[in-house]
Structure formats: structure tokens, C-alpha cells
Simulated scan of single mutants.
Amino acid sequence: MPKTTLISPVKRAAGDVTTVAVRKPDVGALRGLKLTDVLQMDVNAISRLLPRITEPSLLPDEVAELDPADFLSLAAEVVGFFVTAEMKAEAEAELRLQ
């Protein structure tokens, strides 16, 4: 599971969290969320999902206080779990043409 290094560490009494791993969500973690909202990186949907799938587990208040760049990095990792190999290949081919 790849880890994301945070620009602004999460402050905790036990020590700052400087890296966060995001695991692939299962259906249970997605419960109560609209997949379209997750795929569109809706802040509310991603904010509800991250505490369920991060290691160390981020608390909802900690997610709300993330640096926007850190939030975007974590959200991009989440969306990446929904991309198929075919979709990745198409995107890479388009980038090579540009």
C-alpha cells in the first residue's frame, strides 16, 4: 500500500502523522456514499470515506483540517482505485500524443 507524505502533518498528542496510506475501499467502506460523488472528488463524500480507509486512521476532524493539497493527494489516490487497466492505458496513450 503506497503512502502519501503530507505537506502539513496531522498533529496528535502521540506524535505527528507525516505519512498516510490509503487502502482500496470495499463495498462496506462505500456504504452511504454515492459513487458519482466519490469519483467527482466531492469534498463531503471523500471526507466521509477517508476515515474508513486510511492508515493510520484519520479522524473526521483531522480530515476537515487537512491542507487542501494533502486532501487532493489523498482524494486522487481514492479515485485511482476505480480506474481500470484499460482506462490507464488510454490515458497514457493520450499523454504520449500531446
Rank of each mutant, 00 (worst) to 15 (best):
I53N: 06
L59N: 10
P25I: 13
T18H: 02
P25R: 09
T54E: 08
M87A: 15
V38I: 13
A89M: 05
D26M: 06
S57M: 05
L39G: 03
E77W: 07
R48A: 11
G32L: 07
E77V: 15
M1T: 15
K88F: 08
T4L: 10
T18S: 13
T84Y: 14
E62C: 09
I46E: 02
E62H: 08
R96N: 06
E94W: 02
G80N: 13
G32C: 10
R12Q: 00
P9W: 06
E65V: 02
L74F: 06
T4E: 15
G15S: 10
V83M: 13
D26F: 09
V27T: 13
V83A: 15
V20R: 03
V79C: 10
A13T: 13
A69R: 14
L6M: 11
A13I: 06
E62D: 12
E65G: 08
E62W: 09
T19I: 09
A85Q: 12
T36Q: 06
K3R: 15
D26C: 05
D70H: 07
E92K: 12
L72Q: 14
P60M: 04
D61L: 05
T5S: 08
G15H: 12
V20M: 02
K3D: 14
V83E: 13
L72S: 07
L50D: 02
E65W: 00
T84N: 12
E65Q: 11
V20H: 08
N44I: 03
L35V: 08
P51Y: 09
V79K: 11
T4K: 09
V10S: 00
K88L: 13
V78F: 03
E94A: 09
K11I: 12
S73F: 05
Q40F: 02
F71C: 03
V38H: 07
S8I: 09
E90Q: 14
L49V: 02
F82A: 04
G32M: 08
F82S: 09
R31C: 04
K34L: 10
G15N: 00
D67G: 03
F81A: 00
L58R: 10
S47C: 04
D16I: 05
D37L: 10
D70T: 07
M87D: 14
K34P: 01
V20K: 05
R52D: 03
A85D: 14
E65Y: 01
A89K: 14
L33G: 08
A69Q: 13
D42H: 06
E86T: 15
D16S: 08
T54I: 06
R52G: 07
P51L: 00
D67C: 09
T5M: 11
V83K: 15
E77N: 11
T19V: 15
E94G: 01
D16R: 01
V43L: 04
A75I: 07
R31G: 00
D61A: 14
G32Q: 05
E90A: 11
L97F: 01
L33F: 11
V43H: 13
K88P: 01
A75G: 04
M1S: 11
M1W: 11
E62G: 05
V10L: 02
A64Y: 12
D61W: 02
R12D: 09
R31W: 02
D37Q: 09
M41R: 11
K34A: 14
